[in-house]
Amino acid sequence: MSQTEHETPLVELRDISIAFGGIKAVDHASVDLFPGEVVALLGHNGAGKSTLIKILSGAYKRDAGQIFINGEEVQIDNPRDAKKYGIETIYQTLAVADNVDAAANLYLGRELKTAWGTLDDIAMEAEARKVMGRLNPNFQRFKDPVSKLSGGQRQSVAIARAILFNARILIMDEPTAALGPQETEQVGDLIKQLKKEGIGIFLISHDIHDVFDLADRVSVMKNGQVVGHAKTSDVTKDEVLGMIIMGKCPPGAIPGPGALQTV
């Protein structure tokens, strides 16, 4: 990667805040992401990771803060806006439509149409077979509603949907939670491949071991605040664990508002 590409981030979330009732789920959080980069967003359950990225994906409306894509401020008010900017999301809850089949899920909201303007189910199924073949070669159940699939199969459907439309920015919220070791490895390979294609990836996890080797940088959250950012080459796993658990920033990291003040 050349230095020029690093000058403007692909995505910058600046001073984002949102509260539910009295709870500040995200509190003045700032994170950024460059093309071809994997940023792991780490933190305990309830730290505010999912909430923060749902603001980027248009699922929640922020109370305060700004979003920049390629240096330009953008308005993201709903999932349609986010998709317009090439932001694709695999949600922690998967968010698949249970009662329709895999192909319908992959194309939900962006269906292929025939010359007459009707749904082109055959073409969609053919494409779905291709993409799913890449992700999960054993997958054959194209006629079943997604509710009948196993956790891992549903996960593949959610992932396939995100990579089908040439995303520029991919958000993966605990993508391997429902997967076995072999499938987890497949997702790891996929991330490396997408990274090579220049896609920026936010990889969210509560478990550092899942993501440390894949990530270029980590951003750690605690109680809705950002503890700090660090290149994975500048810190050790144990130091990042210290950030996650105690909010303690090691020397190799850039502290955020959530960092423990005096050491």
Binding site: A59, N78, P79, K83, L94, A95, A97, N99, P145
Partner: peptide, 13 residues
């Protein structure tokens, strides 16, 4: 899709 999972439908755009 909305009937099966309203939230997922909204998130799908």
């Amino acid at each position: 899709a909305i009937g099966g999972n309203p939230e997922a439908a909204e998130l799908a755009g």
